[in-house]
């Protein structure tokens, strides 16, 4: 944690996302919304195809935070889901990249601004984590 100072740019973390991940996440989280596993249902509500659970993407962001902070306790975590992560029905899937910059270290709390992209496009709006240093 000693390396976390305001302005520190954290090592981007890259995570694969395949349909298999989404099925497994549905089971573990209890979110069985069919837009995350059925192209038929996803397209019927105007989506381009099966999309990752927003919370799956946020979980990846949280994984990156845990990696950077050696599993520090998280006090706040949040984001908007601004662009869907569309996951094709193939073996490769897509990659989500989580970057982060330390914005503030104050009163034992570290605020990290995140940047979460897929295919070069931001998928989360104002993702942020506050951890206890």
């Amino acid at each position: 944690m000693s390396a976390l100072e305001a302005g520190t740019v954290l090592e981007p973390q890259t995570y694969p996302v395949t349909r298999a991940h989404l099925v497994r996440y549905a089971g573990a989280s209890g979110d069985f919304n069919p837009i995350h596993w059925s192209d038929r249902v996803a397209t019927s509500v105007g989506l381009p195809g099966v999309i990752a659970h927003g919370m799956f993407t946020q979980a990846l962001a949280a994984r990156a935070v845990a990696t950077w902070t050696d599993g520090a306790d998280v006090v706040e975590l949040g984001c908007k889901f601004t662009n869907p992560v569309v996951v094709p029905d193939d073996d490769e899937g897509v990659e989500v990249v989580v970057g982060g910059t330390v914005k503030k270290v104050e009163d034992g709390l570290v605020t990290i601004a995140l940047e979460v992209t897929c295919g070069g496009q931001k998928v989360l709006g104002m993702p942020k984590a506050v951890v206890r240093a």
Binding site: L60, A62, A72, V74
Partner: peptide, 22 residues
Amino acid sequence: AFAEATGGTWSGGALPATFPIV
């Protein structure tokens, strides 16, 4: 199971931050 579903591992310690979504 939750940690592994997001490609991670867990063997004690801090819970995945998004676990309360369950």
